[in-house]
Design a binder for these strands. Structure first.
Lengths: 199, 199
DNA sequence: CCGAATACGAAACTGATGTTGCGTAATTCT
DNA sequence: AGAATTACGCAACATCAGTTTCGTATTCGG
């Protein structure tokens, strides 16, 4: 059960992640240099590569540690619950967007992480699992509201959640528009109430 | 008016973009090597860098040439018009997703382009202008439907369009889910009809 | 025709990611 | 105690993006 050879120095992981986080949030993804991290952490580069096979993997580990997965809150009012959850997603996106001291319209580190997921099959798989789990929570929230009678019986929960979360990502990654709680409220209102004229 | 010195060889642009397109769609973004493109095009590397200052710029130029901007169609039925436009956006996304022969859930080249826009201020600005123009078309479409009385007088056009386009990007870039015309129809139905139970 | 301006090619160079090989240290199993 | 196994540090290396330098070619303006 215990591994055979010399055990890894767990302090190294801690130190490296802390230093890498400082660099990435101060200078952005491009300013994160493996050699510099290794030097500042006082370890050999090979020690880093034994833990994180690429710079992308290290960056993902850094950001993952800072994004404590938010617990879902449920008041029983679907509108308030959706706004709350979207606001938490927006906060996480804004944290990544701010990294590197870029001006507001840039996607910042968030854009690099999308590319990292596209480049490395394992990162992509892991990320999709995380998103699937979060999606499942949102879908369950919607489903319970449907059962309560707050939502239409034939509501398309998947489309609804994609619309809400997708709009946030769209603005951060694509159009560069800001996302905040006020926008989350507009989104939820628009999605729940629909756009058709009263028939 | 005519530039002073020796004019650029326009055939070079043509040849380079063709070769780069072949490489990027065959081997993906990582398989696109500047040295190899220069060699295959029979030009010096400096000649490439005079035209495209980074590999990202070259890749953007390659993809931009293949994405003939779609003209908007308008039948007067907002539901059909929205589905049609979303389907065109989805088609463009699927083209980029397919590049590099990756398996379906990967964002493919689309993910790299998001990162390119985040890395380079000029690419980001250009991309945002393109998206702003496309968004304006969508907003105008919605506004005309509102004036016609198809949509609510107080419809939030911006939120509505973000919800629709955003869901497509969300699936391609983030969750890896497929986007096709059937999904576009679900999205439009969900957004237009709303999710609240009839009050 | 001559000079300024720009494009092109060739080669060397810089800096960063990621790899490889080897000697040494720490831990476990027998 | 000794062998197997794994971690670590060090240094060299390969690869690729991007830069620099310099000599040559092409065009325009005077």
């Amino acid at each position: 059960m215990t591994p055979r050879g010399r055990p890894r120095d767990t302090e190294v992981d801690e130190r490296v992640l802390r230093i890498a986080a400082a660099l990435i949030f101060e200078r952005g993804y491009a300013g994160l240099s493996i050699d510099e991290v290794a030097e500042q952490a006082g370890v050999a580069k090979t020690t880093l590569y034994r833990r994180w096979p690429t710079k992308d993997h290290l960056a993902v580990a850094v950001v993952a540690r800072l994004q404590a997965d938010h617990e879902i809150t449920e008041t029983g009012d679907i509108r308030a619950d959706l706004v709350d959850n979207l606001d938490k997603i927006a906060a996480a996106l804004n944290r990544m967007r701010a990294a590197g001291g870029r001006e507001s319209p840039s996607a910042g580190v968030a854009g690099e992480l999308v590319a990292a997921a596209a480049r490395h099959e394992d990162i992509g798989r892991l990320a999709r699992e995380q998103y699937a789990a979060r999606n499942a929570l949102g879908l369950a929230l919607i489903e319970r509201a449907r059962v309560r009678g707050e939502l239409r019986a034939d509501v398309d929960a998947e489309a609804l959640f994609d619309q809400l979360a997708g709009a946030l990502y769209y603005r951060v990654l694509i159009t560069g528009a800001p996302v905040d709680r006020a926008y989350a409220e507009r989104l939820v209102a628009s999605a729940l109430e629909g756009s058709l004229a009263c028939q």
